[in-house]
Design a protein around this nucleic acid. Sequence first.
DNA 1: CGAACACTTGACAGCCCTCAACGTGAGTGG
DNA 2: CCACTCACGTTGAGGGCTGTCAAGTGTTCG
Lengths: 271, 271
Amino acid sequence: MHRCGSPVPSSLRPAPSHGGGVSETTFPRPNPRTLADDGDTLRFCSTCAFSQACLDEGMDKRALMDLHVLVQHVGPLQPGTHLFREGDPFEAIAAVRAGTVKTYVVDPDGREHVLGFHLPGEVIGLNGIDGDTYPCNAIAIDTVMLCRFSFPKIAVLATRVPGIQKHLFRLLSRDIGRAALLAGDWSADQRLAAFLVGLSRRLAARGFSATRFALTMPRTDIANYLRLAPETVSRVLRRLQQEGVLAVDRREVELQDRARLEALAAPVLRG
Amino acid sequence: MHRCGSPVPSSLRPAPSHGGGVSETTFPRPNPRTLADDGDTLRFCSTCAFSQACLDEGMDKRALMDLHVLVQHVGPLQPGTHLFREGDPFEAIAAVRAGTVKTYVVDPDGREHVLGFHLPGEVIGLNGIDGDTYPCNAIAIDTVMLCRFSFPKIAVLATRVPGIQKHLFRLLSRDIGRAALLAGDWSADQRLAAFLVGLSRRLAARGFSATRFALTMPRTDIANYLRLAPETVSRVLRRLQQEGVLAVDRREVELQDRARLEALAAPVLRG
DNA sequence: CGAACACTTGACAGCCCTCAACGTGAGTGG
DNA sequence: CCACTCACGTTGAGGGCTGTCAAGTGTTCG
């Protein structure tokens, strides 16, 4: 339960703007190589968190071009790289394109509280909109690729494109519910089951196996996310394995009795 | 820790539209009497959660009129009245004008989880934006007055008035952070201290005494909000009283050693 | 006055945290 | 190739915080 942020200096803070004329610098500087790889304007980022918004709303070419110009591809970022730190000026949100991002805060006692793990297609930084600085840290757990959106700019775009506005509202609203999920007083088993089931669902929605996947984060991070001691995480995993619910080998997990896991997780995930 | 929603039938569900031609019916029908009491168009609701947005953005008369037409005054609602229930179609958000609103869910085991208490000036229903139904119940704890906003309509207005959009984004973002606050693994003392300090601050911001106020909700609700047993709430309050930190008489509270309370609450409230 | 309810108080137990030690795998340098 | 280091993970023993169960008190209201 004691875990501080990595002492990695990181390449996160302001960097001079490059060719595009952009000046946002909280996130690492966009990679010119990936900036130019968009062959197809209409499907430039099929895994993007906003692509569905575009399709849903029958977004016209002009609006899509606006969004296209707005996005900045960032990365690849090495594990341990901070995307932003608590107190950094809030300027942008970002969609994860590849890898896993961990958001966390460190309390006065030095204990780390993990707010969430963000998989490809998910958006980070939304909790920074209220206030002019990020209220938490964000760090790459493995190799991460991002789509960065200047928030002032996407907000302006949202006034012209209702589909964008609606999508932003939904993303924000969704995070409120997500934050409340694990807030309940659940048992260690329920919390761990909910974590695994949630992970499985999110991975499946992105085309990965729902029954066999790798945990990209160490046990300590899982523990700090679920408000458990790392030892408890270890013990619960062992017991679930003995009961034939799942198989664990280091960071590889296989869900064997999904029904039982779902039953455990149901109260937490609300059905 | 066992507490279900009141069996009160409530007057919440759809009602025929009245004179105004509005058809939103999830919230109780607006009271025609209070609908017409706005003598001053430019300051029709000084305690409204949106009034600051208007002032901040130098909103023009036209925009303010739009907001004025949009708002529906609801109430007074008697204690125990549901504003909406989980599963009701999402159509509107509302700002509390007077009284206290409790939002909660009931899990499969019948345990009630209180998501929050909402004081005058605060907004409820934001977590319903994602999805077409409310994900929780909302009930009046005491006599409640509301300003109701059709969400589709205020969303349209937000595209024309950037100040409204910005304000909505901030309200949503703020709720994400608020939901994460109590999610940590804090001691009963820390949680109760954070609850009292938070309440004190919010009341003070609305012109009430910061050191002496009434708890509008029963111990059970406080317990379900803080994820504690009612007995624990009782015990902690007694101990804090013995230590001279506060004085409690039924639902009346007086904060006597604010420094100590703030110190206890600091890790939870993040400074 | 009696019933219902909110709240309090006490005894006890259980879950999970803490502390400590050990095991394991990856990377490193000899 | 092997010893070493170090981070990560596992396992065991013990204890504390808080939930559960039970009973009692005080207040409100019919």
